[in-house]
Amino acid sequence: STVKVRLGHLEVTLHNVSEEDVRELRELWKNGADEEDLRRWLEEWKK
């Protein structure tokens, strides 16, 4: 499914993403990950 995730002022649209992935991303964000960390996660996730 396609999910729009809003993290601060960063809005990311993920395609074919699982609930688990979204949860993981939100956890990262809650734990103080900055945009760099999130971008890195997204790069990994896209592979």
Rank of each mutant, 00 (worst) to 15 (best):
S1T: 14
S1G: 08
S1F: 15
S1R: 13
S1Y: 15
S1Q: 14
T2W: 10
T2Q: 06
T2E: 05
T2P: 04
T2M: 10
T2D: 05
T2F: 12
T2R: 07
V3K: 02
V3W: 02
V3M: 08
V3G: 01
V3A: 02
V3N: 01
V3Y: 02
V3S: 02
K4Y: 04
K4N: 07
K4W: 02
K4E: 05
K4I: 15
K4P: 02
K4R: 14
V5Y: 01
V5C: 04
V5E: 01
V5H: 01
R6D: 02
R6F: 12
R6H: 10
R6P: 02
R6S: 10
R6G: 03
R6V: 14
R6Q: 12
R6E: 04
L7I: 15
L7H: 02
L7P: 00
L7G: 01
L7F: 14
G8V: 03
G8N: 05
G8Y: 03
G8F: 02
G8I: 02
G8L: 03
G8R: 06
G8S: 04
H9E: 14
H9S: 15
H9T: 13
H9C: 11
H9Q: 13
H9P: 09
H9R: 14
H9V: 12
L10H: 14
L10E: 13
L10T: 13
L10S: 08
L10G: 05
L10C: 12
E11V: 13
E11R: 08
E11M: 13
E11I: 13
E11N: 11
E11T: 13
E11D: 08
V12Q: 02
V12E: 03
V12L: 13
V12N: 01
V12G: 00
V12P: 00
V12K: 02
T13D: 03
T13S: 05
T13E: 08
T13M: 07
T13P: 01
T13G: 01
T13F: 09
T13K: 03
T13H: 08
L14M: 06
L14F: 05
L14Q: 00
L14W: 02
L14Y: 02
H15Y: 15
H15G: 03
H15P: 03
H15F: 14
H15E: 08
H15R: 08
H15M: 08
N16L: 04
N16D: 07
N16F: 07
N16G: 11
V17T: 02
V17H: 01
V17Q: 01
V17M: 10
V17G: 03
S18M: 07
S18D: 05
S18L: 06
S18R: 10
S18V: 03
S18C: 04
S18N: 08
S18P: 06
E19Q: 12
E19A: 13
E19V: 09
E19L: 09
E19P: 12
E19T: 09
E20D: 13
E20G: 07
E20R: 12
E20C: 06
E20H: 11
E20N: 12
E20F: 07
E20S: 12
D21H: 13
D21K: 14
D21Q: 11
D21S: 12
D21F: 14
D21A: 15
D21V: 09
D21L: 11
V22W: 11
V22L: 15
V22Y: 14
V22F: 13
R23T: 08
R23A: 13
R23Y: 13
R23E: 11
R23W: 11
R23L: 13
R23N: 14
R23Q: 12
R23H: 10
R23S: 09
E24R: 14
L25V: 03
L25W: 03
L25I: 07
L25N: 00
L25F: 06
R26V: 11
R26H: 14
R26F: 15
E27P: 00
E27L: 11
E27I: 07
E27D: 09
E27S: 07
L28A: 02
L28D: 00
L28R: 04
L28K: 04
L28F: 05
L28M: 12
W29N: 03
W29C: 03
W29M: 15
W29Q: 11
W29A: 06
W29L: 15
W29F: 15
K30V: 09
K30M: 12
K30F: 07
K30P: 01
N31G: 10
N31M: 08
N31L: 07
N31I: 05
N31H: 10
N31Y: 06
N31F: 04
N31V: 06
G32R: 04
G32L: 06
G32F: 04
G32V: 03
G32K: 05
G32Q: 05
G32Y: 04
G32I: 03
A33R: 02
A33Y: 05
A33V: 09
A33M: 08
D34K: 12
D34N: 13
D34G: 14
D34T: 14
D34H: 11
D34I: 07
E35M: 08
E35N: 05
E35W: 09
E35F: 10
E35Y: 12
E36G: 12
E36S: 12
E36F: 10
D37C: 08
D37F: 08
D37Y: 10
D37P: 03
L38C: 02
L38S: 00
L38A: 02
L38D: 00
L38V: 08
L38I: 12
R39P: 01
R39K: 11
R39I: 12
R39W: 14
R39G: 04
R39D: 03
R40I: 08
R40F: 06
R40N: 10
R40P: 00
R40D: 05
R40S: 07
R40H: 08
R40V: 09
R40E: 06
R40A: 11
W41S: 00
W41V: 02
W41C: 02
W41H: 01
W41G: 00
W41E: 00
W41M: 02
L42F: 14
L42V: 15
L42W: 12
L42Y: 15
L42I: 15
L42D: 00
L42T: 03
L42R: 01
L42A: 02
L42C: 04
L42S: 01
E43I: 11
E43N: 11
E43Y: 12
E43M: 13
E43L: 12
E44N: 15
E44R: 15
E44F: 12
E44W: 13
E44L: 13
E44H: 14
E44V: 07
E44S: 14
W45F: 09
W45L: 06
W45N: 04
W45Y: 12
W45R: 10
W45V: 06
W45H: 09
K46Y: 15
K46W: 15
K46L: 15
K46D: 06
K46C: 05
K46S: 13
K47R: 13
K47M: 09
K47G: 10
K47T: 08
